[in-house]
Every structure is written in structure tokens, then in C-alpha cells.
Design a protein around this nucleic acid. Structure first.
Length: 586
RNA sequence: GGGGUCGUAGUUCAGCCCGGUUAGAACGCCUGCCUGUCACGCAGGAGGUCGCGAGUUCGAAUCUCGUCGGCCCCGCCA
């Protein structure tokens, strides 16, 4: 390479006119007009038009062979374009490069898909040739935004006196939470490391070590099934602070989020953010992470159906919950559309979904003929029906299940009926989560957040007597119906931690084996502390307007957790297995 | 583990229901022409194991079963 780059393609503009420059980049497009040959040269910074003309015979001859994705170094003089040739679409559109000398740094095969944002390509091909997809401006810009958000994060936390500390990747398998990725130990046969689901215990121990304020942008690993917003390895902004309470954390994180929104998408966030209790969220929206960009709240219809003759509602009316959603916008729904909603409700565990249309003062269709006139008039009043609409009803003995199903339907209908103002940013905290949750599978209570979360002092008594009533000092940050961060004030005494372990049916022996180091640490003067973790990928996804987390990760896995470019996972040599004392059983 | 959906030229898709010509289109690619285009234009051309494997049939891109892969969802996961 004899030409040395002096400028980036995308940075050139009219102020460079008259200068000689050297730029390097890829042939984004070429246009052969016989007497003149245009090349759009692309790099990370943008695109610039290069003009090859017969006035420079060697360069002009060379240009005839240029094709898409050839890599060129071009020495040229920057010239203002003729007035009628200015391209207003391009930041470099006022100038063009008149070639003095050109060097082909590399040729390229015809790419499997054009490197253009406007070309639709299926995702498996994009993933197989990720380096080509990453050349496309739209994906490149998302990766650039990810970088910017990481830098803003460091800037913010450094400015607030936090220190970044790395925690181990080879760590210890723990019983609670997600399935671990295991790493066999060569030096200690029959033993395994686990990749961290999060650095939770390490950051608590850093607080016990007196580091006071910690953060880390850190990879976490969970061996669970993937979703469009879930990858087996993902990144968290992990935060922990000492001598604070939940108000301190929430107000500081609000400032962080405010800064991020201002400096990435230029949005103003009004502080403080609203807080809703878990119970209110469930009651009003049927979700612990409700999308509050639109209304259409749930309506408790349990009182309406006390003593009902309608069989399907009887048990829920007496010992459960009957809830409704009223959508005037869905009054013209077809049978197929209501059937689809019923299928959706069932897929989330509802026994069914009842519906009726309310039109010109009368109920029609669905279950209307099973409902008494008295119930109908109570319905009109309870729901506050002021116009025609579709009423959807879910009943179940399990209150949370019924509310959750209504929440799912609320979201689906809002999307289907275009009721969501996409320009809105609805941020709030969900607080006062239940601390424990009964798991029928395991026949015990499990921690809803994680087993290190502190109960609210006033609910301490419930831990033994009525575990499901105890609330945790936990908080989630919700943006447009997505959980973007979650955290808690931690338990900081050994006694309380042991008590919670025992409520989780962890025997003292198990507790010592799995978390002995933490229990020990707690007994050496652990300060009160708490923290939070942001889902970094999810945050970038939302700020960049992406529909999948894969679009903000340079090298993501497919839904079946494979890497299509490098072909992971893959088999390993017998010798490697032997060294690790591993034998495959089939 | 379960459900849905997709898989046809390099790419995006049509054809599939109702089996039967040489499997089409657009873009891309190649060749030629074109001195101001910028998703240039014009003319011509090449390009297919219809994901893979069985089955039904005289005959399968088309019907059936299985399998592999992409995407979405439930379970799982915070």
C-alpha cells in the first residue's frame, strides 16, 4: 500500500475544496458513462463520489474493472461539484474527488447480497456474512450508537464517583435462577466452573470490601431459550452502592437515563419518574411492566358477577377474579378476530376468553345471552361504557393469571388497532414486588428477584407466616412496556440472609456449600447496600429503534443459539475431552 | 419440551390449494453501447439438486410423513 490515508470518505465537504487528499474505502456503487466513470467510495464515516475521467488515462483504464466492494485507495483533489450536479442527499454531496492516482488494495467477489440498506435479506444470510451486513450503514450506525451509549455510561458513573471493577467469568454454579453454562475444570477433575448469570454476589462483596460505588459493563450468560430480546450471552450495566436506600438508587438512575435519552435521541425526560406498585400495575394493566403509553385499563368485574347464574364465572366470582377490557375501537371485530384473541388468551393459560359487543345500548354476541339484565346494567356502570365497543372478559380462580392474560390482550389490541403513540416515551418504576413466589413445580417458595433481596422491614413477619405477602425492596425501570433495569436493596446481615435461605427451603448445609463465602462476608461488617442492573443490549435496541436485540450485537446467535458465521457450537477433539475427563454418552 | 410460520436463480419473491409444457418476475451478475450520473440509462445474455430424505402416483416445486435450518410465541428466563 503506497498511498497513505489523509482523510475519511465521510468527513469531506466544501471546506476541503482545492485540497489534495487520500481516502480509502469500499466501492459502494459504480456508474460507467463511457466518457466518465463514477465510483461512490464508502467507509465507516460515509460516502463520497470519485470521478475517473480520460484526462488521467491510467486511472481511467483501471476504473473499468472496479466492481462492488473492491477496496481502493484514491489520491485526488477535492473539487466543488457543478451547481446542477450537487447531491443534497449526501453529506459530501457538494464536492467530488478528481482522481490523481488509484490503488486497488483488494478485489472482491460479488457479495451474496448488495451492501444497501434498502435491500431486504433474510437473517440467516445476513448472519452468515455478518462482516458484509455490518458494512451496511443501518447496522453500522446501531453498533456506533451502542458504543456511544457505553461511553455515556462510563462518563456518567465515573462522574458520580463509581469505579469499574472486573469480576470473574469463571465462577461458581448456583442453585437459584437460570440454567448455568458450565466449564469443565482440567486441573480438578469432576469439578466445573459456571459462567456468571450476573456478577451479583461479587458486587455485593465489593461493597463489603468497602469500595462504596461500583459499576461494570459486563457480559452475563444464561443457558435458556432465546427470544427476540434475549441472547444466551448479553451485556448488563451493573451497579452497586453502599449506605443508600431505594430512593437514592432510583433518583440517581433517573439522572442517568435522562442523560442517555438527551444525548442519544435528544429526548427530554421529566424527573422524577412516576412509581407504581406491583399491585397497582397488575390491577390496572395486568402486567408488572405495563406499557403506559395508552390507557384501556383493566376493569374489575368480580363484584358485577356475585351470585351469577353463568356457570363459567361462578367459581371465579366467589373465589377468584373476573376482569374486563373495553375497546370501543374493536367494535367491528370479526369472528376470526375474536377467535384469535381467544387462542392468544389460551396460549397464556386462560381457560377461555369471553366477549360481548355493546351496541346502541344493548349487548350482542358472545356470552351476551347468558348474562342477566341486572348484570348487564351493572356492567355498563362498572366499565363506564359511553360508546359502542367490544368487551373482553377473563375469569379465573388465579387472580394474577387472569390479570396477566388481560394484560397480554391489552397489549395485542393496542398494537393491532394502532393505539400506541410511537413518539411517546413512557418511563416509570414498578416497586413493592412480592419477595417470594410459590413454585408448584418445586413445591416451595422461590425468590422473585433473587435470594439476596431484602424484604421491606414492615413485612418481615410475613416471611414465616405468609410468605406470599412479604414485599421486597425491589424496583424495576420500565420503558414503553419493556423492563430496562431491575434491582433491589440487598440483605446485609448474615441472620437475615440465613432466614431467607431457609424460607427458600435451602438447608443450612446447602446454603453453606453454595453461598458460604457470602454468608461469611456478611458477618464481617457488611454495609447496607443495594444496586441495579440495566439490560444494555435491550436499552440500545430501544434507543436505536431496533426490533431485535440481534441488531445491536455485532455477532449474535440465532434463535437456536448457533453462530452461523463461525459455526458454533461445534464438536471438539476426542483428546480435548479426555483431558477434561469427559465422555460423551451418545 | 410444545405451537405457529417460512425455505423455489446470487438476493427478494410468484407458482403450491386444484399434481401434468422448457419452473417465472424484479433486482443483482456478465457482454456491448452511452461524458454528469449518484438505487444512472439502453440492448442482449448467463444463471435452478424447488433445503434434505423417504412415501403416494404413470408423473411431485405442488399431496403425505420425517428431518435440517431461519423467524415468532408458550414453557423456561429477570
Amino acid at each position: 500500500m503506497s498511498l497513505k490515508r489523509t482523510h475519511k470518505c465521510g468527513e469531506l465537504n466544501a471546506s476541503h475544496a482545492g485540497q489534495d487528499v487520500v481516502v480509502c474505502g469500499w466501492v459502494d456503487n459504480w456508474r460507467d458513462h463511457a466518457g466518465v466513470f463514477f465510483v461512490d467510495l464508502r467507509d465507516r464515516y460515509g460516502r463520497v463520489q470519485v470521478v475517473f475521467s480520460p484526462e488521467n488515462p491510467p486511472a481511467f483504464a483501471a476504473a473499468q474493472k472496479f466492481r462492488s466492494e473492491y477496496v481502493l485507495a484514491v489520491k485526488a483533489s477535492v473539487a466543488k461539484r457543478p451547481e446542477n450536479a450537487i447531491n443534497k442527499e449526501l453529506s459530501t454531496g457538494e464536492i467530488e474527488l478528481h482522481v490523481l492516482e488509484v490503488e486497488v488494495l483488494n478485489a472482491s467477489k460479488t457479495p451474496p447480497f448488495p451492501i444497501k440498506d434498502y435491500v431486504d435479506v433474510s437473517e440467516d444470510i445476513r448472519l452468515t456474512y455478518r462482516y458484509l451486513d455490518l458494512r451496511r450503514p443501518a447496522l453500522r450506525d446501531k453498533i456506533l450508537m451502542r458504543h456511544k451509549i457505553a461511553q455515556l455510561t462510563r462518563e456518567f458513573f465515573n462522574g458520580e464517583g463509581f469505579i469499574e471493577v472486573e469480576t470473574p467469568i469463571l465462577t461458581k454454579s448456583t442453585p437459584e435462577g437460570a440454567r448455568d453454562f458450565l466449564v469443565p475444570s482440567r486441573l480438578r477433575e469432576r469439578e466445573f466452573y459456571a459462567l456468571p448469570q450476573s456478577p451479583q454476589t461479587y458486587k455485593q462483596i465489593l461493597m463489603i470490601a468497602g469500595l462504596d460505588r461500583y459499576y461494570q459493563i459486563v457480559k452475563c450468560f444464561r443457558d435458556e431459550d432465546l427470544r427476540k430480546d434475549r441472547q444466551p450471552e448479553f451485556t448488563q450495566i451493573d451497579v452497586e452502592m453502599s449506605f443508600i436506600d431505594e430512593d437514592d438508587i432510583m433518583s440517581l438512575m433517573e439522572k442517568f437515563v435522562q442523560k442517555l435519552f438527551r444525548q442519544t435521541i435528544g429526548a427530554k425526560i421529566q424527573l422524577p419518574l412516576p412509581r407504581h406498585t406491583y399491585q397497582d400495575c397488575m390491577r390496572r394493566f395486568g402486567s408488572d411492566k405495563p406499557d403506559t403509553r395508552f390507557g384501556h385499563e383493566l376493569c374489575d368485574l368480580t363484584p358485577v358477577f356475585q351470585g351469577t347464574e353463568f356457570r363459567a364465572f361462578q367459581s371465579a366470582a366467589s373465589e377468584g377474579y373476573i376482569g374486563g377490557l373495553y375497546f370501543p375501537e374493536a367494535v367491528a371485530f370479526s369472528r376470526k378476530q375474536t377467535d384469535d384473541l381467544i387462542a392468544l388468551a389460551k396460549s397464556f393459560g386462560a381457560k377461555g376468553l369471553a366477549w360481548m359487543k355493546y351496541q346502541d345500548g344493548a349487548f350482542d354476541g358472545g356470552i351476551s345471552k347468558f348474562i342477566s339484565d341486572a348484570e348487564k346494567s351493572r356492567l355498563v356502570e362498572q366499565v363506564g361504557m359511553a360508546s359502542n365497543g367490544l368487551l373482553l372478559i377473563v375469569s379465573d380462580e388465579n387472580v394474577e393469571l387472569a390479570q396477566t392474560v388481560l394484560g397480554v390482550i391489552r397489549n395485542r389490541l393496542a398494537a393491532e388497532l394502532n393505539l400506541i403513540d410511537e413518539s411517546k416515551l413512557a418511563l416509570h418504576w414498578t416497586v413493592d414486588f412480592p419477595m417470594l413466589e410459590y413454585s408448584p413445580d418445586e413445591d416451595r417458595y422461590v425468590a422473585r428477584h433473587h435470594p439476596f433481596t431484602s424484604p421491606k422491614p414492615e413485612d418481615m413477619g410475613y416471611i414465616d407466616s405468609a410468605p406470599e405477602k412479604a414485599r421486597a425492596r425491589a424496583y424495576d425501570l420500565i420503558l414503553n412496556g419493556n423492563e430496562i433495569a431491575g434491582g433491589s436493596i440487598r440483605i446485609h446481615t448474615r441472620e437475615m440472609q440465613e432466614k431467607v435461605f431457609s424460607a427458600l427451603k435451602l438447608t443450612p448445609e446447602e446454603a453453606r456449600a453454595k453461598f458460604g463465602f457470602l454468608l461469611d462476608a456478611l458477618s464481617f461488617g457488611a454495609p447496607p447496600h443495594g444496586g441495579i442492573a440495566f439490560g444494555f443490549d435491550r436499552l440500545v435496541m430501544l434507543l436505536s429503534g431496533s426490533s431485535s436485540i440481534r441488531d445491536v450485537i455485532a455477532f449474535p446467535k440465532t434463535a437456536s443459539a448457533m453462530g452461523l458465521m463461525e459455526n458454533t457450537p461445534s464438536e471438539v477433539d476426542e483428546a480435548q475431552l479426555k483431558e477434561l475427563n469427559i465422555r460423551l454418552i451418545h
